[in-house]
Nucleic acid binder design. Sequence first.
DNA 1: TCCCGAAGTTCGATTTAAATG
DNA 2: GCATTTAAATCGAACTTCGGG
Lengths: 357, 357
Amino acid sequence: MRRAQSNGSMVTIRDVAKESGFSSTTVSIVLNDAPLARYIPPATKKKIERAAEKLGYRPNQFARSLRSKRSHTVGVMVFDMTDPYCTLVLRGIENSLYQASYLPILTDVHNERSRFERYLEMLLDRRIEGLVVLANWLFLDINLLADLEESSIPTALIGCELKGESVSSVIVDNEVGGYLALDHLHSLGHRKIAFIRGPKTLADSAPRWRGIRNYAKKHGLELDSHLIVDLPESRDPLSSFEAGQKLTEDLIKQKRPFTALLAFDDMTAFGAIRALSKAGLHVPEHCSVIGFDDVAPSTFYTPPLTTVRQPMEAMGNSAASIVLEGIKSVLEKREVTAQHGRVAPELVVRESTRSLP
Amino acid sequence: MRRAQSNGSMVTIRDVAKESGFSSTTVSIVLNDAPLARYIPPATKKKIERAAEKLGYRPNQFARSLRSKRSHTVGVMVFDMTDPYCTLVLRGIENSLYQASYLPILTDVHNERSRFERYLEMLLDRRIEGLVVLANWLFLDINLLADLEESSIPTALIGCELKGESVSSVIVDNEVGGYLALDHLHSLGHRKIAFIRGPKTLADSAPRWRGIRNYAKKHGLELDSHLIVDLPESRDPLSSFEAGQKLTEDLIKQKRPFTALLAFDDMTAFGAIRALSKAGLHVPEHCSVIGFDDVAPSTFYTPPLTTVRQPMEAMGNSAASIVLEGIKSVLEKREVTAQHGRVAPELVVRESTRSLP
DNA sequence: TCCCGAAGTTCGATTTAAATG
DNA sequence: GCATTTAAATCGAACTTCGGG
């Protein structure tokens, strides 16, 4: 198991050849169990394996990669590591890659274009075999595709979608999610509901709202436009907490009563709860609050947050699997066509919502 | 900027040589600005650079690495990605590496020994130049050192310490932290204080408690042993939330009054707040709560948590810098001696504590 | 033809030693 | 010897080709 040779004095395939008394060719064939290994008698194999074991031989990946043009590495680009949304998704990605013996190179773009470009160059230079991008928004003119498309590196986006057949994606069904959220509130008897919508330029915002409107129309629920506010454009997760708080304060000041609040996402919901709480309004006694995402803190928040869960780990898993599948495809020179997955969200009822008496 | 050649048909240094009319040797010298480049006339350089630019030449890292034996890669091992403690530390690491043009390979050990070993092998095979390990505990018999020490790969631990001169470490000064926490509570007038201590086997637990005891002794504060409880052994961050809740419930049931609670860490504090809240006790009106770590949710918790901050980003930064420095040292064949950093924690006063009337 | 093994080439960049004028 | 350039060796593994039994 352990390296026998100390220090960096690597033992090469030639050393194993010498030790075992065979040529390096034979050693290579045996150790890789290459097709030709069929012809090699067990006795020879044993000797070679023993020699390798004895010397603690480990093939040099650089040499291997140089020859095979494969890195066994996948790039993972996160737009903002700080976003609590990342954690579980990353775990999902990691898990898939681990199963396949791939290693992830993690890059955090800090929502900066320059960093994005620099990292992309670096990853391409490392000859990553695939790329997973974790982002809920993208730089407007996405000529990132330029590099990617021609490089024929299987790529999957998590959290936003890019129509076309070159880049795969995995997203939640936001429309269903919005529908579920309002359904929950409505079923609990809430009729005066405040809404904090997502930033206009965020791709998630529109479909989520559409789901909400669909539900409302279907059930004859009137949405009071005075109770509908929008999150500003910022990309920073903490700022959506602050904005959520601020907007809720404004909502409260209006004196237009509401018994429930539907927040764009969990961070916003946390902000709302804070504002409510500061105003002496208890959640859920005085006002129910529902979020979206089910980030980790939602479980241990006080009160625990009712929310619409994105199956984040599964999404990470799925994206990595798509990329891995793509890699296999290009290896076998099969057609690689982008997958567009849309996973179902799930209502998680906890204690921040309650039915109206 | 962009790759001119499409597809994977790489342009090699020989292509540049042909295009420019010089040998590949000269091209290499010029493009790397090697010492010999002094002798090469500007005109030649220009031509070569232009040719490289025109063809969109990018050196093959595999070949480069094979020759130089360097990967420009650092391994990052996280014991549990799910721990909210990770996020900011990772960002710190990432930032340092980025400055130095190193790329991190991220591995998540899931607190499993087998995964740890497998990943370590993989990283070593990739010839990582350095290793950063993010863990608040280690497998008991740490023969991981066996592999590491002999491989002479600069390694830094974040969150726990390993005496000796082979592995560096960066930890908070837990003793000072414990002291600060109690100081805060005491200064606010609290005398009846409950304590949830860390698991016995966790290295952080003892020094944190020592700091607390020191403060108590120094200020003649008596600690009521009925109000001191211990977290069980689990390694899972969520379980420390649950345990925090459970223990606090027990504490409350005892009917032994306390006006403040000092939790081992933020997760535990969240659990305590939940228990208090369920019992109808408001934080901080009825009971102050202080945590330790200052993980991200502490800011946006309701109430925002007063806590003792570990400067996590700085710690990640520092660990990566130590490793980077170590890499430089081995390159220059200087002596590499482990650094043991102990950074100062900082009291962050928010709204989960208040002064007694 | 089947089995076994080896010599030699290749991957792409760096570097040493040496060759020009 | 100097400035300028390059052929050839090297890094380590994998694969192609070939020869002997």
